[in-house]
Design a protein around this nucleic acid. Sequence first.
DNA 1: ATAAACCCTAAACCTAACTTTAGGTCAATA
DNA 2: TATTGACCTAAAGTTAGGTTTAGGGTTTAT
Lengths: 148, 148
Amino acid sequence: MAYTIGEIAKRFNISISTIRYYDKEGLLPNIKRENGIRKFSEQDVETIFIIECLKKTNVELKDIKRFITMVKQGDSTIDARLNFFKEQKEKTLNKIKELKTALKMLEYKEWYYTKAQELGSAKELEKNIDLYRPKEMKKLFDSAHEQQ
Amino acid sequence: MAYTIGEIAKRFNISISTIRYYDKEGLLPNIKRENGIRKFSEQDVETIFIIECLKKTNVELKDIKRFITMVKQGDSTIDARLNFFKEQKEKTLNKIKELKTALKMLEYKEWYYTKAQELGSAKELEKNIDLYRPKEMKKLFDSAHEQQ
DNA sequence: ATAAACCCTAAACCTAACTTTAGGTCAATA
DNA sequence: TATTGACCTAAAGTTAGGTTTAGGGTTTAT
């Protein structure tokens, strides 16, 4: 089972040129060639899967490369790889927390503009905000502003 | 109560040049000046707070600017602003889901390298992965791979 | 009165992560 | 046989979101 670059691009919904760029940057070592044409193995597919996962958690390509390089180096880097993932997990948990805080503001704004729409005026709403705003919306507003 | 650019920079933990850049890009309209020096009002602080929130949810500056411009245009844009926040809320919920999926992979890798560390070898672990891997880790691995 | 600590602008520079361009190979189809 | 469609490379171009540089103006402490 060997895949072409076009098949991989479709499967992961990334462009062919992006895959070639990753290859050039050293994120995809070991890729076999037949007459100069890349043939991706199941192992390569798993590597790309991990790259995509890490990209979603905002890891920079140079850090992804650092990890890929460690894999090639073998067992001497197991500790460092474990730390890499522990760190990445912490960062991701923090990012989720951050997004949940931002979400509070978005939900508040949704309430705000729904009410403004009802009244036909944002100024009118602003003028008597305490009159129109239920307690739980005041709380939402305040908690969105709490964290710095 | 008017703040200087330096005070704002400290409060939001962003650089002075970034604030000037936002101003230049039109994200901070209405800022008063005294002898050419910017004086930030409470309203300006709230605008910067919203910009920071939106940045955390990965909104591009040009879209933040679109919103800021709508605020200036007044009540005729209330519907559009409501839609903007509804959309942003959906995107943020999706991003949280995406991060939670990525987290499964990170947690799996943490288990994986902890075990590899124990055995002193990743190859050894790989060779008999089913022997070493508890059911719930197999599940975690599979569910991380499910979504595309 | 001079140096430190603020503030200002315009314009050049930088980095990450791609994308586009220009030119070429090879295999299959009309 | 010629054209279509996949693949290839090297190198230049692009975009977002800043940062740095160079030059200059106040105010305040020593």
